[in-house]
Design a protein around this nucleic acid. Structure first.
Lengths: 219, 219
DNA sequence: GTGGGTTATAAGTGAAATACGTAAGTTATA
DNA sequence: TATAACTTACGTATTTCACTTATAACCCAC
């Protein structure tokens, strides 16, 4: 069985040495190399891309998220594990968005670090309990926002009006709407006028935006 | 110390009995009552709202999510714990969105159920490991989509064209745009035609949606 | 430095679409 | 049953669309 090849990026010598010390005794891992800056990191991994890249967020010349983005594109076989003292949701979200497969706080244990390395090496994601909690909080927050933003009050339109608005906001012109609903084009226009009046909208552009905001149509 | 008052909603007698059997021996809890439908549930909790409402998703006359919504508004002091055999992300998301404080699969253990009850009674959220994993997967997926959706490729428009599109998508009609930019209305029309041709858009509605998707204007 | 591509400007023209005020017939519902 | 709300419709004025043509400015390459 081949060993998991690790590359370490952290701007503190002591931290790198600490991580190495934690990993050295695991005989299914091998430390391929290390770097203290983004520049050094890219120079070295170009020679031999590792299986797992352990990244700090804050670095002298760049940050772990930028490195993650580039690595995800240029070395898709390399999986990124973020190891950071920063645990705020923005960093986590942006790391994941950039393509990180795992995120650990710096006060993690040796066992957790090893679990994380193995998990992401096997194609899974790994987030420590504390990071998971932060992500779940964010999930809950976003789920609730999902309800608050889109509609400030019920839609005060009739069934027919919503029907017209939906078709219009889907891109049909009045003639097509009148054909589909088998009514006069004038009626379609009137309905649209009523909608605009009711909602106090001044242009068809606002009408379309209203339809999107209120999920009458997809964007 | 007062006991945590529980109310059970599930359309299967056997399930309700099972849950009661699991909880009966905990002397810091008391089963206030139970219901097998939404209607019955609302009738009974109106008399004495519980601290924790344990809800099934599927019910004969409604569903747990609708009940959650109403309870969250009408009885804010009552916390909802969803206990469902359905573990797909949509149900979880919508439950949380509706105001549920916890979500457990039906194959949960007595210990986990008790932990969940105590957690949400204390104002925390509680999701079982399996549910948490589903939520985290979704978090990761959404984080990645966050980058993919907004732009599939760079905007192939000139500065002037973007300027025209921006004003149009803000709701100005051609005449107003021509006045603001101090150009002929024919020029505005020509620009708009060019934009439509370039982007292969068939209606002004699509034009507006394009502008929103590509963040040329706010929704 | 001349030709070619891109951009920004403008116009003609007929057809198509829309805006807006008005109004009649139909349901709900109080 | 009276009133409000909803759906339907038209006339006229305005606006936009679709397609074509045209000119000046600019940049870039050969």
């Amino acid at each position: 069985m081949s060993k998991i090849r690790i590359f370490l990026v952290d701007d503190h010598q002591l931290v790198r040495d600490g991580i190495k010390a934690l990993l050295i005794s695991s005989d299914d891992l091998i430390i391929l190399g290390e770097a203290s800056s983004g520049k050094e990191c890219f120079e070295k991994i170009a020679i031999e891309p590792p299986d797992v890249l352990i990244l700090d967020i804050s670095l002298p010349d760049t940050n772990g998220i930028e490195i993650t983005k580039r690595v995800s594109v240029d070395y898709p076989q390399t999986r990124v594990l973020i190891l950071s003292m920063y645990t705020n949701e923005d960093f986590i979200f942006n790391s994941v968005k950039a393509g990180a497969r795992g995120y650990l706080p710096k006060n993690t244990s040796r066992e957790e670090l090893l679990s994380a390395i193995h998990a992401i090496y096997n194609g899974d994601e790994f987030f420590s309990d504390s990071i998971s909690r932060i992500m779940l909080k964010s999930y809950v927050r976003k789920a609730k926002e999902d309800d608050l933003l889109p509609q400030r009050g019920p839609i005060p339109l009739t069934t027919r009006e919503i029907e017209i608005l939906k078709l219009f906001a889907e891109g049909y012109i009045n003639k097509e709407i009148s054909d589909q609903l088998d009514i006069s084009i004038r009626t379609v226009e009137t309905h649209k006028n009523h909608i605009m009046k009711k909602l106090e909208l001044k242009s068809t552009v606002e009408l379309i935006k209203y339809a999107i905001r209120n999920k009458i149509v997809e964007l």
